[in-house]
Design a protein around this nucleic acid. Structure first.
Lengths: 195, 195
DNA sequence: AGAGTATCTGAACAAGCGTTCAATACAAGG
DNA sequence: CCTTGTATTGAACGCTTGTTCAGATACTCT
């Protein structure tokens, strides 16, 4: 027997990626087997190879599309007028976007080491690309006298680390709403680079 | 044949832990085999079980002794007089200690999921213990009017995430010295919770 | 109705996994 | 020199791994 009723490529493909994302984030790339992913989708392991050439590429595609979407979504937002307004927008955007995709964020920061050199370089470049958008805001604000960061590059990395950390503890329905978390972090970021 | 010349338990044990720490941090817990660890030490896989009951316990022992040492080292420092001085000491201590143990720090934040529930709870409790030391500083400073953090708990997590992030990019012999990094981060932290 | 194609199964492959254990080699003490 | 105990080997255990592929099924188009 083969081919279940009503099964289609356009359905199975996304389901495989979704299952892989969740399982990789929860258990780690190396700890998850192709058979586990297949079972989650309700399919045999062999069928996965209709959708990915191998396991590493499956991970890479997840990371790459996450980074692409992160950058594209930010770039699609209308830029605010002043550097402080742009910084506030960045803080709120980064927290909100990452909270919606906690699994992908965790993967992006933890499983890069399972990529081959070429794939690793691709994801690293995208990450730098994104960080540079924050770097540019800080640079512009410095030039305009809005900010005083002793080192723009370090401030970029420090702020991103701080914001990304939200995904490790935030729980929906907890003590604080997303907006409130955004308010508090914006207050800290604003002051940390204040002139 | 068995037992190489001059090999002793007091030497092999630490070497196993050191090799496991490096390999786990570099490749991930699940991706590293007992045979790889043994090979790194120059021993057969079976010999590892003279020093650990199983693979998970090996990981747990690494994480536990790291957390114990982190807390003990901080507690052994003479407490500074005022909350701002204590905060500065914490910032510089956390960066310095973690830079010396980048592998262990990475493990502590990434491989908790490979622990069973009991071991997981133990490490989590130690982490909270450590975070509470920063929380107490912020609380005291708030009461004394030195700081204005909108939410002490969030400020704690934000600052720790920011400081721990240093280990992901700092390279010895790079553009900035450790002290300079400490200066810059202290400046940002100080302002972020300023009254 | 029949042909063709896309989708999936189920078994197989060699390799590697964590772990156990009898046999063995060495070091130390008497 | 001989015994005792510790440290280690090397083979073996049953199981799982990523990946391949011939064959079977269901859908689509003519």
């Amino acid at each position: 027997m083969a081919r279940k009723t009503g099964s289609h490529s356009e359905i199975t493909g996304p389901r495989i990626r979704a299952a892989a994302l969740t399982l990789f984030a929860r258990n780690g790339f190396a700890a998850v087997s192709m058979r586990q992913i297949a079972a989650e989708v309700g399919v045999q392991a062999g069928a996965l190879y209709l959708y990915t050439p191998d396991k590493e590429t499956l991970l890479f595609d997840l990371l790459k599309s996450h980074m692409d979407e992160l950058i594209a979504t930010w770039d699609a937002l209308p830029p605010a007028a002043t550097p402080p307004a742009r910084l506030e927008a960045f803080v709120r955007f980064h927290i909100g976007f990452n909270l919606d995709r906690a699994d992908a964020v965790f993967l992006s920061y933890m499983e890069l080491r399972n990529l081959g050199p070429a794939n690793f370089a691709t994801i690293e470049a995208l990450r730098r690309d994104y960080e540079n958008r924050l770097g540019a805001i800080l640079h512009d604000g410095q030039a305009a006298g809005d900010f005083t960061a002793p080192d723009a590059k370090l401030a970029t990395l420090a702020i991103i680390a701080m914001l990304t950390g939200v995904t490790t503890w935030y729980r929906e329905g907890g003590r604080l709403s997303r907006d409130r978390v955004g308010d508090i972090y914006w207050d800290m970021v604003r002051k940390s680079v204040a002139a």
